[in-house]
């Protein structure tokens, strides 16, 4: 365990998880219209603070908790089977499309094929112009073995409150990797964060 992950783990042991600045997440949230309906797809685990965050808006929040399906998604399946798994990992196709997608660090836990298929299925549920936010382990070669549980702070920063300390190699997807895996999306903005993660905002 090296670098910022090690420092972060050490901090966690001493004083709990440390918040980190996520400017693109803040931008995304600030852009949610207060008086217009908005459908949010959260690929992570349900988080009371996220619900509170959108509680003041005309929102519906779809919780997918894709982490439950990671093992299946990463299996060596043929395309049709993988599509079915990806469809099953997401809420049913709606007549009301998604406006905003919170991926958190889920993409790091998917192999390229699974990532491509899952995000293609997300795209089918979303309207053109939908924004998707993601956190990619980039600077460090290791990442926790399980996806994080990110809690937004009042000031717009994020805290990973997941208790997982065991590490595994990170895929360290580059922007080019992500372009290839997410052909329906364009990278709107990307920022390297202080904790070594790269924050991405994709637009459909």
């Amino acid at each position: 365990m090296i670098g910022s992950l090690a420092r972060s783990a050490a901090r966690t042991e001493l004083a709990g998880p440390a918040p980190f600045n996520a400017p693109l997440f803040r931008t995304l949230i600030e852009g949610v219209p207060e008086d217009e309906r908005c459908v949010v797809l959260d690929l992570g685990k349900v988080c009371p603070q996220v619900i509170t965050l959108f509680g003041g808006h005309r929102c519906r929040v779809e919780i997918a908790e894709v982490a439950q399906e990671l093992e299946l998604l990463n299996r060596d399946l043929d395309r049709e089977a993988l599509q079915h798994v990806a469809e099953g990992a997401l809420p049913a196709l709606l007549s009301e499309p998604v406006d905003l997608v919170l991926c958190w660090d889920t993409p790091n836990y998917l192999n390229r094929e699974a990532l491509r298929m899952l995000m293609a299925q997300v795209a089918e549920r979303a309207r053109p112009g939908t924004l998707a936010h993601a956190l990619i382990y980039y600077a460090e070669p290791q990442m926790p073995v399980e996806p994080g549980h990110y809690v937004p702070d009042a000031d717009g920063s994020l805290v990973n409150v997941a208790a997982c300390t065991e590490l595994r190699p990170a895929p360290r997807y580059t922007p080019e990797d992500l372009r290839l895996c997410l052909p329906a999306y364009t990278i709107e903005r990307a920022m390297l964060l202080g904790n070594g993660m790269q924050e991405f905002l994709f637009r459909l």
């Binding site: 619900i51 959108f54 808006h57 519906r60 929040v61 779809e62 919780i63």
Partner: peptide, 10 residues
């Protein structure tokens, strides 16, 4: 809590 589904808040 474990939750999979939607929360309508509009």
């Amino acid at each position: 809590a474990r939750f999979k589904g939607s929360i309508e808040m509009d």
